[in-house]
Design a protein around this nucleic acid. Sequence first.
DNA 1: CAGTGGGCCTGAGTGC
DNA 2: TGCACTCAGGCCCACT
Length: 271
Amino acid sequence: MPELPEVEVTRRSFAEGIAGATVLSAALGKPLRWPLGCAPSHLAGQRVVAVRRRGKYLLLDLSGGLLLVHLGMSGSLRFAHHLPAPGGHDHFDLVTSQGVLRLHDPRRFGAVVFTTGEQSPLAQKLLGGLGMEPLSDGFSFDAFRQGLRATRAPIKQVLLAGKVVVGVGNIYASEVLFLAGIRPTVPAASIGDARLRRLHTAIREVLALAVERGGTTLKDFSSADGNPGHFQLEARVYGREGVPCLACGTPIRGLKQGQRSSYFCPRCQRA
DNA sequence: CAGTGGGCCTGAGTGC
DNA sequence: TGCACTCAGGCCCACT
């Protein structure tokens, strides 16, 4: 479900509320993608220092380690003083002195992992290979171009892989390529500077706007305080196969790249 | 080593 | 109404 904006909006919706809280207990439901990595009781007594984000991972800095949370395809978090008894798809509860943080995840591609810290082998395995943060100053045009020049793969797959830049999921990948006039199948290394600049700008602007709107193009997102996304960012190409392009009227085309669907306008995205 | 495809899991939607 | 099938917003890992 979540791409970078949804994860960031989720983070903002509970980071202040949980900061400074003491963990009272933790409870697991069905197995998630990976084991927690410690007994749930090990979390009790630890203080929640801060909540950060890296790519689509949420990083809860605890006084005794780091709790990594990933929402996978279908995960969502709620944070509230009182939550009802866990339902069938609620698979992790972190009960704190300031409220309960609950992971709801029907498909269970999500994960909650405790490690000793960001430098631990496990944290490095999960976070070490991640690319640049698209909303940070480090995401310069030059660094972006350098990253794309170093691969032979099609641009869509390079964006999704997250090794050059993180947070661009399957929907936003199609959208930013449309805005930049780039066909998803072209080799990343072959894109000229003019289009590359448009792509760099589109990534920053689209993601920043989505975060700012508290929302998303997604259908069923709500943040940890229960507020829904605003649906301000309607998809221009994603999911619109056969529908006339909003810019030129040409029917949008769909295709599969690496088991994932891509959409593009054959006229607006010629190269 | 870079690049590709399989698989994890459940629910919603479609076609017969 | 029921069944079989396809597809879905992510990402690790085995394989080529």
